[in-house]
């Protein structure tokens, strides 16, 4: 079984971080994982994306032409990745920031007001976790416990206090897709 996803948005939105979180959690569960960033002469505020593959078998290509799923943080990334998602794949997008609708009828599209939800939790900084939660609620390539377990790798020192709020943001994403 292989799950793969592209996560895309602006640099600074925590795009790369939730990809790494997913990869760490997958590894801790004993799965095969790859995390591949877009890289280039990047600039602040420019677009950034990463591809994550989680599988039971050794992973061949870490390069995804047609990802099974995409988590989208901005319009530019929507325009880039919505057309290439695998047939009958999953599209999760922050409807607070992306006003467009997908024209593809084959996709399972989740329009989640992730930034609004995060702000209600205290800060738009948690938007990435809300979106990751929505993905995990839909696909569940790994357990929430593994994801929670990997949070302390990224939230160290003073940020340790933020683990609980990040868990709540993840859970808010899961809840949003579960109630539908």
């Amino acid at each position: 079984m292989e799950h793969n996803v592209v996560i895309a948005g602006f640099g600074g939105q925590g795009v790369m971080l939730i990809g790494e979180l997913l990869a760490h959690a997958g590894m801790d569960e004993g799965k095969e994982v790859t995390w591949m960033p877009s890289y280039g002469p990047e600039q602040r505020g420019g677009t950034a994306n990463c591809s994550v593959v989680i599988a039971d078998e050794p992973i061949a290509s870490p390069v995804l032409t047609n990802p099974q799923a995409a988590i989208i943080f901005n319009v530019q990334s929507f325009d880039k990745f919505e057309p290439v998602i695998e047939h009958e794949g999953l599209l999760i997008l922050d409807s607070t920031l992306v006003e467009k609708k997908s024209a593809r009828s084959d996709l399972d599209v989740v329009y989640i007001p992730a930034t609004d939800i995060a702000q209600k939790l205290g800060s738009s900084k948690y938007t990435n976790m809300v979106l990751l939660g929505a993905y995990l609620g839909k696909v569940a390539p790994i357990t929430m416990e593994s994801v929670y377990g990997a949070l302390p790798i990224f939230l160290t020192g003073k940020k340790t206090d933020l683990i609980e709020i990040n868990k709540r943001a993840l859970q808010a994403g899961v809840d949003f897709v579960s109630k539908k």
Binding site: M27, E32, T34, M36, P37, Y39, P62, V63
Partner: peptide, 10 residues
């Protein structure tokens, strides 16, 4: 190449 250099794997 840069792909092996930049990606992460266990």
């Amino acid at each position: 190449d840069g792909l092996i250099g930049q990606m992460m794997e266990p």
